[in-house]
Design a protein around this nucleic acid. Structure first.
Lengths: 187, 187
DNA sequence: TGAAAAAGTGCAACGACTCCACTTTTCTAT
DNA sequence: ATAGAAAAGTGGAGTCGTTGCACTTTTTCA
């Protein structure tokens, strides 16, 4: 990797770090992009050369999550249904970093700031197509099968559904129970 | 209704009308709030006394939709399941105004403008709690039952899922099939 | 070595939105 | 009927996110 790319990565990292620190410190809305730029010692315009928006400064580690998601479907134990595998994966994501206090503050920040909630959801839902394709491939359905797409959409939506509910774990379980077994018929 | 309220409602209506006309004409991003204000012959600040944001200028008729939604559950035919009733209601909403060219332009505008898509979805999802409560009441479950909430959430999400897919009707049907019967078990 | 490409800067600008001090209109209570 | 509270509207200045442009500096590569 040449010096150019290294420097570029460095300023990008400096920006993400400064942003995280300031946002956790004062709150997202109380920090301007100019503040972040100054803390990283670059000009405001440079910030937008690296990140498409202020919100993007916080969501910089989004590449592995899709891979893990696909793997949860593809490499699930023999005999486990796809909804159940997705449920396990979702619950695992929730419990991961439950001990890390830095992570806890990060989660609290993103959930309490509307703009960040929205942005985070959008980023997360971007994996819908990939997940739907993985499910379709696994079940032998056509690649654009709407049933597979629906499952992918709803499974991803689960985290946004659980957010803000009193008992998040219970919410996730109820949602996946619905996806797995359907709405209980009356009688 | 006193003169004051009447005048207030009048300027509000004038703003909404001007906004609709201009947005349909030139596109959402090509019209500034000032343009709308001038077209309605008020100052820019007045606009924000009536509407919380530029997007809100377009979504001014949101009160009846929740009532219709609740009614679709509560007044469904004897023996019809709740997911099916919600499916019928969703499909009905889609086909309503399919003939109205003005409505078609409106839909096209909101679906092609990211900010409006997001805003419309947020407004729509606001009915989640009310719908969940209606479902819970109908089934005799506790008011905050997570299963009912999950069904409400996913049923509302259906329109956002169908949006952007090639065959919207097929997407809605696949989504509700999943909610009604669950993911088909292997074997 | 010299020139293209890319990173960064500085500035000006636009648009959404807020704040504030102020005028005008309408309501209400005496 | 009239005074005064309450609300609607105005105007302007200001903040913030975001973009565009013209320009300098650094790095790459032929």
């Amino acid at each position: 990797m040449g010096r150019r790319e290294r420097k570029k990565a460095a300023t990008r990292q400096a920006l993400a770090d400064a942003a995280l620190r300031l946002f956790l410190d004062r709150g997202f809305d109380q920090v301007s992009v100019r503040d972040v730029a100054e803390a990283a010692d670059v000009s405001t315009t440079t910030v937008f050369k690296h990140f498409p928006s202020k919100e993007a400064l916080l969501f910089d580690l989004d590449s592995d999550r899709e891979a893990a998601l696909i793997a949860a479907v593809r490499d699930r134990p023999e005999g486990m249904s796809i909804p159940r595998a997705l449920r396990e994966h979702t619950l695992r994501m929730h419990s991961d970093g439950a001990g890390d206090p830095e992570m806890a503050r990060f989660v609290e920040l993103t959930e309490s700031t509307p703009a960040l909630r929205e942005y985070g959801r959008r980023m997360w839902m971007r994996h819908e197509a990939a997940l739907a394709a993985a499910i379709a491939e696994d079940t032998g359905a056509p690649e654009d099968d709407p049933g597979c797409a629906a499952l992918a959409h709803f499974a991803l939506e689960t985290v946004s559904f659980a957010r803000g509910r009193a008992d998040a774990r219970q919410a996730v379980e109820a949602a996946f129970a619905l996806l797995e077994h359907g709405w209980p018929a009356a009688g």
